[in-house]
């Protein structure tokens, strides 16, 4: 039950895009058509779902104050948490590289459809953001951390597919010229964010 709560919270209430604006750059750049939005969305779900639990293990068995006690009691006082940024980003970059190679080897069709999006994900803030939120909120088990990672990915997927659909439709509307493209996308995202805020009061 707890896992369901974390999942729903990550998807709707603390949506990566509408509540924290993470991964906005690729969200704005790749949302011109629904097809590419879906591709990128799946890739993000996958990478978040894998990298958050891996970062969780790193955090709890290597970086946190006293986390290295399992190696030898002498290391119990070591606190490496200031290294977490560099560890997390290196983990994410290598997971992205790994995922790219695995997909290329076993599912070539998916690989060609994701194309350039895969390497782009390494610098998508929502991935590092997911890892850092996991660290800040101190989830107690790896199960919770993975559910959180997966849920955040699903939330991001929903957001990018929704905005891509709206942008496909808005091409036929008469938007003021200076507002066309980027400007109107910002404002629509803002309005969608207000809509998503209605979930805020929900306690689960």
């Amino acid at each position: 039950m707890e896992h369901v709560n974390i999942f729903i919270k990550a998807v709707f209430i603390e949506n990566m895009i509408f509540a924290y604006f993470l991964g906005m750059c690729s969200y704005l750049a790749i949302s011109k058509t629904v097809k590419s939005a879906v591709g990128l969305g799946f890739a993000v779900i996958f990478v978040l779902g894998v990298s958050v639990p891996v970062c969780y293990l790193l955090e709890n068995y290597l970086l946190k104050a006293g986390a290295m006690a399992w190696i030898s009691p002498g290391l119990a006082t070591v606190d490496l948490s200031f290294l977490s940024f560099i560890m997390f980003i290196a983990t994410i970059a290598s997971i992205v590289q790994l995922v790219e190679m695995v997909i290329e080897k076993f599912v070539p069709a998916l690989y060609t459809s994701l194309g350039i999006f895969l390497p782009l994900i390494a610098v998508n803030c929502s991935i590092l953001g997911g890892a850092l939120f996991m660290q800040e909120r101190e989830y107690s088990t790896i199960g919770q951390a993975s559910v959180f990672g997966f849920g955040s990915g699903v939330g991001w997927f929903l957001a990018i597919v929704a905005i891509a659909a709206i942008r496909e439709k808005i091409r036929y509307s008469n938007v003021p010229a200076p507002l066309r493209g980027l400007g109107i996308t910002f404002i629509i995202t803002g309005l969608m964010g207000i809509a998503f805020m209605s979930f805020m009061g929900v306690t689960i």
């Binding site: 604006f21 507002l179 400007g183 910002f186 404002i187 995202t189 803002g190 964010g193 207000i194 805020m197």
Partner: peptide, 10 residues
Amino acid sequence: LPPMALIVVG
């Protein structure tokens, strides 16, 4: 609130 930031930038 967060959404306002988007609208202001827009």
